[in-house]
Computed example of a mutant assay.
Amino acid sequence: MEGPGPHAVNSVRPEGADAVAGRVRWDPTHSTWNGGMLATALILGPLTFTPAAFAIFLLSTGACLLLGHSVGFHRRTIHGSFQCPIWLEYLLAWFGTVTRMSGPHWMVRTHDLRDWAQRQPHCHPYLAHRTGMLRDAWWQMHCKIELERPPRFELGRIGRDPFYRFLERSWMVQQLPIALLLFWWGGIGFVVWGVCARIAISVHGHWFIGHLAHNRGPQS
């Protein structure tokens, strides 16, 4: 913990860290993946649309965001808000991974870095969504922040757990069995809507909500 207070973040060790000094750099891995999924959805989505494919999109997006990103990654892995059997924890972590924002270690580091930085007197605009919408979209989905003096991270059990390490290494590959199953079930349309469109809307929706939450309303 950062300290004994109730709002301390999970894994950040902030000694000597600076939340301001740093630069935003293009992240080729996430940029190519996110851009490729969006382009595929926009180009092939209208050509392969069927009511069944759209139903697959709705069901798979809801399952991944709710079970995986919200309950699995955010509430269980990051905040430890509830206890559950290890098999259920692993299942929820898998759903979180196939939501396709990244692997579990990356998600914890990203969440805790931003949470820590926003509690400092000042932080880099990247970490606070404090730029215009178009620049923030490019930064958040296609770039990464490289702080000159970043905090250290101690991921604890999930950093040592072989299953979490496997998910971290293979987060892209985890889409393959889903794509094969959907192709067998309903052809290329199911793959486009059940993988590409699902990933595109999840990534862009997650960014859009974050951007609005940091720039609209009472900010409390």
Rank of each mutant, 00 (worst) to 15 (best):
E2D: 06
P4D: 06
G5W: 08
G5E: 10
P6V: 10
H7Q: 09
A8N: 08
N10M: 08
S11Y: 05
S11N: 12
V12K: 01
E15M: 03
E15F: 02
G16H: 07
D18A: 13
V20H: 02
R23D: 15
V24T: 06
R25E: 13
W26N: 00
W26K: 00
W26P: 04
P28I: 00
P28R: 03
T29M: 11
H30C: 09
S31P: 01
W33Y: 15
N34L: 00
N34Y: 02
G36M: 11
L38R: 03
L38P: 02
A39C: 04
A39E: 09
A39Y: 07
A41S: 12
L42R: 07
L42D: 08
L44V: 10
P46Q: 14
L47A: 13
T48A: 05
T48M: 10
F49H: 09
P51Y: 01
A53K: 00
F54N: 12
A55G: 15
F57L: 10
T61S: 13
G62H: 04
C64I: 13
L67N: 14
H69T: 13
F73E: 01
H74L: 11
H74G: 08
T77I: 14
F82Q: 10
Q83C: 00
W87D: 02
E89H: 10
L91H: 06
L91S: 15
V98M: 11
T99M: 11
T99A: 15
M101H: 07
M101F: 09
S102M: 10
S102C: 07
G103E: 10
G103W: 06
H105L: 12
V108L: 12
T110H: 14
H111C: 06
H111D: 07
H111G: 06
H111P: 01
A117E: 03
Q118H: 08
Q118S: 10
R119C: 03
Q120C: 05
P121C: 09
P121I: 08
H122S: 14
H124T: 06
P125V: 00
A128C: 09
G132A: 08
R135P: 01
A137F: 12
Q140N: 14
M141R: 10
H142N: 08
P150Y: 03
P151K: 02
R152V: 09
F153W: 01
F153N: 09
F153L: 05
E154A: 14
G156D: 08
I158T: 02
I158E: 02
D161A: 07
Y164G: 02
R165Q: 04
R165K: 00
F166T: 11
F166W: 13
L167K: 09
L167E: 12
E168R: 01
S170P: 00
M172K: 03
M172Y: 04
M172G: 07
V173A: 15
V173N: 04
Q174E: 14
Q175R: 09
L181C: 12
L182G: 04
W185C: 11
G189W: 02
G189Q: 05
W193A: 06
W193I: 13
H204R: 10
G205H: 04
G205D: 13
H206G: 14
W207E: 15
W207T: 06
I209A: 05
G210E: 02
H211I: 03
A213N: 11
H214P: 07
R216M: 08
R216G: 12
G217Q: 00
P218V: 12
P218A: 07
Q219F: 01
Q219R: 11
Q219V: 05
Q219A: 11
S220K: 08
